[in-house]
């Protein structure tokens, strides 16, 4: 089975029923997406498939059609993505475990809505659970990223 992850083709010998998350983590060694619940209820495993956030813990790898981007694929050779930099600037993470998923969702939100309102943020991000309660800083970081993106046209 062939996947494209972060621009790289990956050949995997996986049962098509295996969730994408475990194919990435255990077979491909890509550990940015985290296991949190296994039932698409916490968002820690969020990756992008053709730009859309999906919960990789519940998506059978055999159903994947399209290019996969994980947190590892967000930062390029020139450093952190705008969203990651905003996360760093706002000092968002505490334990950090959910943050890869949070960042993937925020990235997708800003691709669709360049200047998200508080409601937009609530609507987009409520699928990503954070037990440390970093939500106020997540909100601030999304707004900061929106401003930065507008400035740089990124």
């Amino acid at each position: 089975m062939r996947l494209t992850v972060n621009g790289n083709p990956i050949e995997l010998d996986a049962d098509p029923d295996m969730p994408l998350l475990w194919a990435l983590r255990d077979l491909a060694g890509i550990t940015g997406p985290k296991f949190g619940c296994g039932i698409a209820a916490c968002g820690a495993c969020t990756v992008l498939v053709d730009g859309t956030p999906v919960r990789s813990c519940s998506l059978p790898v055999g159903l994947v059609e399209g290019e996969i981007v994980t947190i590892e694929g967000l930062s390029g050779a020139d450093g952190l993505s705008v969203v990651q930099q905003a996360w760093l600037d706002e000092q968002v993470p505490q334990c950090g475990y959910c943050q890869a998923g949070q960042i993937m969702s925020a990235h997708a939100l800003l691709e669709e809505i360049s200047d998200p309102s508080d409601d937009d943020i609530d609507n987009a991000m409520a699928g990503n659970l954070c037990r440390c309660g970093t939500y106020p800083r997540i909100r601030a970081a999304i707004k900061r990223a929106a401003v930065e993106k507008a400035k740089t046209g990124a």
Partner: peptide, 22 residues
């Protein structure tokens, strides 16, 4: 659903085989 949280972020073309899965 909404930007970055569509129904299809969790609900795929077949059932999750896991109890309580989407």
């Amino acid at each position: 659903g909404n930007a970055a949280l569509r129904c299809t972020s969790c609900h795929f073309s077949s059932n999750s085989s896991k109890l309580h899965g989407p």
